[in-house]
Design a binder for these strands. Structure first.
Lengths: 158, 158
DNA sequence: TTAATCGGTACCGGATTAGTACTATTTATG
DNA sequence: CATAAATAGTACTAATCCGGTACCGATTAA
């Protein structure tokens, strides 16, 4: 399946909290409490988001994190991308096919960037503003032909 | 990062082989040899694809697998979806939010199906026919703003 | 009858991820 | 100026999941 790491999953949850906070900084502890997530994890994720430039961090008493841009200017792709690090497993979907031992028997590799881009575009089309709507209009049923294609969203699992 | 399992990755490789075979059945061993993939793995994947109705299997001597539909009628979403099984980790992105212990503190969950569908649509727009073109026109560079969003396509890694 | 091939299940090892612990650094506030 | 509240960084452990293998049964053309 196509899955997203739990880190990115939590990241989206936290970002929606901050979107609703309207620029006012929130501490990691407050966010963890609000979403019922483990504090160290929340802390780690917020740090990463700040490093990626999506959040502004304010240290010291009364400090916290706040959005660096307006919710409408932040996409799901931004958040997920920020939390996934520039991992090395990108060889065949990215630009550098060097070091690909199977290249001579693989005519498909050139197509991965296309798929890549298609998914990226899909994720970029969804803004944080949209995701922050408190009660979304229950979207139309997923029209998978025979089997549900699932994103591994573990955010709400036990 | 957003990653695809290696199984699905191999699956696409194998499907392109079969697309080029033009209806003529190929044995698992032949496909494994052609793509330089481990035979047991190939066997496992082909079985799953056949069960999903994407391949037709012919047992016995001179048997093998062949496409159940025309390459143009099979999408990347079909292949990936077939290999990812109806895992249980779908609770929050699928339809049934039941059993989600954090539901009351999670206003985002309702949005996962949307993201889900967006990605699904992207994958469905790419047909096996397109992917089987021997040497694809090197697609335009991936226009990620600051960081490459990567699909973990490990097909061509060592 | 035989050999080639698909079908299914169970299992193991390794890699990645989730989560934790600890310490240093910054800063508002009294 | 001292203190407490908060972020920043790093290293580490534990659990899960994935890739891969092995084995045996069922089919079927020759």
């Amino acid at each position: 399946m196509i899955r997203i790491t739990r880190e990115a999953d939590y990241g989206i949850l936290l970002m929606t909290c901050l979107a609703q906070a309207e620029g006012q900084p929130r501490s990691a502890a407050a966010l963890a409490q609000q979403r019922r997530l483990p504090l160290p994890m929340v802390s780690k994720i917020l740090k990463a988001l700040a490093r990626a430039g999506l959040l502004i961090s304010q240290r010291g008493v009364q400090g916290g994190y706040s959005l660096a841009r307006l919710p409408a200017e932040i996409s799901a792709a931004d958040i997920i991308g920020a939390l996934e690090g520039p991992l090395a497993i990108t060889e065949c979907s990215g630009e550098n096919h060097d070091g690909c031992s199977r290249l001579e028997h693989c005519e498909v590799s050139g197509h991965w960037p296309r798929i890549n881009q298609a998914i990226y575009a899909a994720l970029q089309s969804i803004s944080l503003l949209e995701m922050s709507r408190p009660d979304p209009p229950r979207p139309v049923r997923f029209h998978a032909p025979h089997r549900v294609m699932a994103i591994n969203a573990t955010s709400s699992l036990v």
